[in-house]
Amino acid sequence: MLSVHEVTTAYQGLVAISAVSIEVQKGEIVCVAGANGAGKSTLLKSIAGAERPRSGTVMFDGKRLDGMAQHHITATGIAYVPENRRLFPRLSVRDNLRLGSYLYRGEANREEPLDLVFKLFPRLSERLDQRAETLSGGEQQMLAIGRALMTRPRLLMLDEPSQGIMPKLVDEIFQAVKLIRDSGMTVLIVEQRMAECLEIADRAYILQTGRVLMQGPAAEITGNPDVRKAYLGL
């Protein structure tokens, strides 16, 4: 479904990821793990069009994405939830969600993704009239994911959904990711908290200083003695 081939992205000459290749198949949850500064976020930004890769190609369902404008990439069916969530703080929860549903031009059913969002995150349905800025960190993350779902994406990309959130809600969010996949979407998730993420992932990549260090089925990676020592602290 998504194929990233030898992508190199640099910030003003500073190479953040170099020749990174990853594959995501339809219906998978793929986790990209790695320490701070490994280039995880840069990888997602390069796919979403927030950063322009210096070289390499990004293909999504046979369409070439690299070089496309960000809003065109969104329209191909990729929803990207960035690290800082980028909510609209002074708009209500309802408006934030509705905004997601206005990215598709067609007059398709707007209620359907909303039902899914409320099923995944019942808290949001209780807070529809509240401003987004009054939500807790976890709720804001839920809202960001919910808004992304309103675009009815085929591929959902999450950048560190666990960041700055209390542990109980982290579990809730990861469980929601599983349900999202079960409802027919594909998920590419970038995380520092590898243990939790590997639990729900089908396959995983480990990035280190901008390169793919290791890849394989999640179970295999979890079982790898080096990974256990270096990343999982076991």
């Binding site: 927030a50 960000q70 809003h71 969104t74 980028r86 609209f88 708009l91």
Partner: peptide, 10 residues
């Protein structure tokens, strides 16, 4: 409210 976020949403 947030032009950058709007842009990133499409």
């Amino acid at each position: 409210d947030n032009p950058d976020a709007a842009q990133s949403l499409g």
